[in-house]
């Protein structure tokens, strides 16, 4: 296992839209390892929003992190077979459901190739694939009200191939940053720890991090005052 964290687009977006990229920069120094993203994820984080006015500033800020080496971009070859393989796990009437994107698959392959120790993902689908693929199956059937074919052999092979991937979210990263005092300048001392954690977690949640209200309540109890 190497001192490497792989980031999905969703986790970087949650931090960028909350103005927390500087905290990520400080966390990277403290980590004494590498923070990496795939080339497709870089495009999603920088190139696509750069052409819009709404998120151009965030794109510029993420680009600066890349320029400074805080986020390292890794190129992956031959992700197509894995993408087709993973997107073949669920199908409807014999037609594979294309649930995951090439960027997410590239991240998985980077994790594997570099023997990383953590995968930072804020969005739900990728996390369910890695942590509870049967639940993913149930979710699809529940949401689509249709019988979804589940290729168990393929799912087993996927789990075997990507076993032991440790998933975390931007909210756990920021909770640790808080405990380390990296967010001290962001909060008024007039508010207590619980209010500060509440503000932090709801900020992340409202900008897309998949963290439930119950989980936010847990964070308020578990996170220690710096």
């Amino acid at each position: 296992m190497n001192k490497i964290l792989v980031f999905d687009a969703s986790s970087v977006i949650s931090l960028a839209t909350n103005g927390l990229l500087d905290v990520l920069r400080e966390l990277r120094k403290m980590y004494k390892g590498r923070f990496v993203i795939s080339e497709v994820i870089r495009k999603e984080l920088v190139d696509v929003p750069f052409n819009t006015k709404k998120y151009k500033l965030e794109a510029m800020q993420v680009s600066r992190l890349i320029d400074d080496g805080v986020l390292e971009v890794i190129k992956v070859n031959d992700f197509k077979n894995t993408l087709d393989f993973v997107n073949g796990i669920f199908s409807l009437k014999g037609r594979p459901m294309q649930l995951l994107h090439s960027g997410e698959i590239e991240d998985l392959l980077i994790y594997q190739q570099l023997c990383a120790e953590g995968f930072v993902v804020d969005e739900r689908t990728m996390r369910l694939f890695l942590e509870d693929i049967s639940e993913m199956h149930q979710l699809l059937e529940r949401k689509l009200h249709k019988r979804i074919d589940f290729d168990r052999r393929r799912a087993k092979e996927f789990q075997k191939r990507f076993t032991g991937i440790s998933v975390l979210r931007s909210c756990e990263l920021m909770a640790v940053a808080y405990e380390k005092g990296l967010l001290a300048d962001n909060f008024s001392e007039r508010f207590g720890k619980e209010e500060q954690i509440d503000a932090l977690m709801w900020g992340l949640r409202l900008r897309g991090c998949a963290v439930s209200t119950d989980e936010i309540d847990m964070f308020k109890k578990l996170v220690k005052k710096h």
Partner: peptide
């Protein structure tokens, strides 16, 4: 159940 990146790609919007 479609992932965030896949959805953004399908609709041509930013993530």
């Amino acid at each position: 159940g479609v992932s965030l990146s896949k959805t953004a790609d399908l609709l041509g919007v930013s993530a």
